[in-house]
Design a binder for these strands. Sequence first.
DNA 1: ACATATTGTCTCAAATAATTCTACAATAAT
DNA 2: ATTATTGTAGAATTATTTGAGACAATATGT
Lengths: 295, 295
Amino acid sequence: MDKFASMRAFTQVIESGGFAAAARTMGVSRSTVNKLVINLEDELKVQLLQRSTRQVNPTPTGLAFYERCVNILAEVEAAELAVSQLQTEPKGTLKINAPMSFGTLHLGKAIAEFITQYPELQVQLTLDDRLIDPIAEGYDLTVRISQPETSPSLVCQAIAPVARVLCASSTYLAKHGVPQHPEELTEHSCLHYGQIVTGNQWQLSDREQEYRVTVKGTLCSNNGEVLRDAAVRGLGIALLPTFIIQQELDRETLAIVLPNYQPPALSLCLIYPLNRHLNTKIRLFTEFLRQKFGL
Amino acid sequence: MDKFASMRAFTQVIESGGFAAAARTMGVSRSTVNKLVINLEDELKVQLLQRSTRQVNPTPTGLAFYERCVNILAEVEAAELAVSQLQTEPKGTLKINAPMSFGTLHLGKAIAEFITQYPELQVQLTLDDRLIDPIAEGYDLTVRISQPETSPSLVCQAIAPVARVLCASSTYLAKHGVPQHPEELTEHSCLHYGQIVTGNQWQLSDREQEYRVTVKGTLCSNNGEVLRDAAVRGLGIALLPTFIIQQELDRETLAIVLPNYQPPALSLCLIYPLNRHLNTKIRLFTEFLRQKFGL
DNA sequence: ACATATTGTCTCAAATAATTCTACAATAAT
DNA sequence: ATTATTGTAGAATTATTTGAGACAATATGT
């Protein structure tokens, strides 16, 4: 039996001056109001209302209880309001983790724009190219450039495709020749992500076939900008997201190699805890990013 | 959905540090606690608890809501406690209405004894021989000497038989003769209750038959003691409850007339509002009276 | 490293409760 | 007097809650 409903019915009867009136304002039947109040009285083992067929008056005890009920109901309402406001008005800190390159090149500006909209919100951005556990490390949102991964307790949302290209400086290409086929890459000096043994498998495909090449790396790094700068200096061929080398392509300090062969698609992924009710801070920011970086 | 139950479950989960622990201390299944909390979260559209398969932690919003919940639940409990104490410990005033004669002769002493047991209780005794509406005039309890009457919204409890006898002074009887049969009363001067036209019908019966006599009254009153005193002074034959004339019978200043003919039985009646939950003040006092005046 | 126990959650059938409909006696209002 | 409205009671329908069992995920103990 719902004590909360009973209390509401009881106070409403007192305020409306009758069961029928209370039922009308509450939008239920008279029986319901009646039983709700009777249940309350039975539970308390107290007569709260004195009914004389046509008139309803609170007993002294009922009046005392009414005062308290009004208080309690108001406090419940206040608590719910506070929660929903806490929820709809983003406050506090939003902890974000993102890879170095994307962070410095794009996310910084986006966040700056975002926080001007929500002055109550503080953002703590951690740039890190490690793979991290967002829950264990307490991040509200993690940004990754990767293939969408699935996991329980995490939702991974791909919001934009991230194109990657092979590229090298014109000086390097002049010196070592321009490769015309993926197989030729084994003869080149390649600059790749990650560790020597893990990131040295490049996958390229044209319309018909897929080629897996194990490249020799003169330099590998977990940071794209390092690879980009190395490529600019003519150290080799790098496989890099276009957003990192856009400027270099425009200035023609880097040139695309093997343009007819595509590496596997990556995406800009947003990773956040899977919850029944998504935090507003997170929801607002992901929406903002989705709008900002397309889809 | 019972909001208080949800709030209790939620607070218990936080306090016990888990759904299973909370379920154990609440004596319900894990499913129930789970659903209760989920319902609460759904209603508020907020994630209150962050669950990671083996650990439960409140979100910042959840923590804020928890504080308020604890408050609210405490207040609910306080309100219920206050009501039940207000109910079990009789305080305030008990308004009693009783007829003059019984009031002065017996009830006064009884009430004096009663209130010594309950120092918090004040009794307001109104002696009145009018027939009154206990609810309309706001009496908690009405004492009447009458035949039990039935009524909606009132309960009439006969707690003791009240014997009545015909009586007169020896001087009167010596002067006018001792009646041997009810019919002879029409020749006598009779002292009766009420008004001239309403109380002048006396009903007497022996084992075989019932006699209705319309008596001539030289004096009628709505007060038994007036009639008694008139009878003592030899003004006529009165029909009076024994408790009014006990002393006079003992002292032989009044003698019983027609002892083989009984008037209809009356009772000492307690009349109080019919309610699902009887007020403790009333309950205690009626129990006291029932114990005092027998049954 | 493996097996075991415990966690939060889900689903489904059974039990339980709530709500309305209807009827009724009592009482204001007209 | 008549009419309308009140609070209440019981039956029937509807909705909800409950717990058992199953499940995947994760600690814990050996």
